[in-house]
Computed example of a mutant assay.
Amino acid sequence: MRTIHLLPVSLLAFGLLLPAAPVQAQMDPATQRLIDQLRPQSQDALNATRGLRRPPSAPSESPATPAVTLTPAAPAPQPPPRPAPAAQTARPSTTAPAGMPSASLTVNFATGSDELTPSAMRELDRLGRALTSADLAPYRFRIEGHTDTVGAASLNQALSERRAAAVGRYLAQRFGVDAGRLETIGLGQTQLLVPTPDNTPSAENRRVQVINLGR
């Protein structure tokens, strides 16, 4: 009877004991822009500028010969300066306080409701991926609901509060964002991105503003 000897085969060779390496999904450009907007700026460049020193000036030496005074030639006549073009005022992208990383998102809701539309969910999916990224995971954020001036101010205030809360719930349920990282608030029509008269529909003013509150 022939004896068959089986050589020991390491399971590691087949990768059976090795955990699957996590694959980091590449962020789409829109999500990456949100990350860049909401991430605090680095202070490295500022610190480097503060550390710069002027080079020492060369020691002055007394001239060996008397200084010669030169009479400058008369300047050539110059044409009259052209009037500067009228400055164009850039539209603001946020009403957040200066220095606080922020982003304004167009989140569409059903009319007069806090029900998220499919396009709103797609926008919030980008926000959810941004807030759970390694760059933004350590920070807390304020979710602000804003409306335009259509309708009564009191109704817009209540509606903006419900919509901000709906955004917070969506981020928590779909992406597992810790509720302790999110502060939701409604501001109604009190902070218009684009000033308009009463009862003026404006997609730019109907927005959700996200502000980085720090760690």
Rank of each mutant, 00 (worst) to 15 (best):
V150T: 15
Q191V: 04
T196I: 07
P81T: 02
F109Q: 03
R122N: 09
L116D: 07
V210F: 04
R53K: 15
T190Y: 13
A64Q: 14
I35V: 15
N108G: 01
E161N: 13
V210L: 10
L11A: 15
R82P: 03
H146N: 15
F175G: 07
P72Y: 07
P197Q: 10
R174F: 02
G168N: 03
N199T: 05
A158V: 11
A13G: 10
L116V: 04
R2A: 11
R163G: 01
T65P: 00
D36H: 02
I211H: 01
P92T: 09
L7T: 15
A98E: 12
P55M: 06
T111G: 03
P77I: 01
D198K: 04
G51W: 07
A134E: 09
R169T: 14
A25M: 01
A87M: 07
S133W: 00
R215M: 12
L7R: 15
A166W: 00
R206T: 06
L155F: 14
A203C: 00
L192F: 00
H146C: 10
R54D: 15
A98T: 09
A152Y: 13
A134H: 01
A48D: 08
Q32D: 13
G145N: 04
E204S: 11
A158T: 08
Q32S: 02
A98D: 10
A13V: 11
V150H: 07
L17H: 07
A179Y: 08
L182I: 12
S10L: 12
A87T: 11
P75M: 05
A48G: 05
G180Q: 14
R207M: 05
A153I: 12
N156D: 09
L124Y: 12
R122E: 13
D125V: 02
P85M: 06
A152H: 14
R140M: 00
R142V: 10
L16V: 12
R163S: 03
S93R: 07
P195V: 07
S154Q: 15
S154R: 13
A152P: 03
Q88G: 02
G112M: 07
V150G: 06
Q43W: 09
P138D: 09
S60C: 06
R91D: 03
L12R: 14
A137R: 12
A164L: 06
A74Q: 08
A172L: 03
A110S: 11
L124I: 09
P101S: 05
P138H: 09
G112H: 03
T31K: 00
T95N: 14
A90E: 08
P19N: 00
D198L: 04
P19Q: 03
R39C: 10
A73Q: 11
A73W: 02
T184R: 05
Q37V: 03
A179V: 08
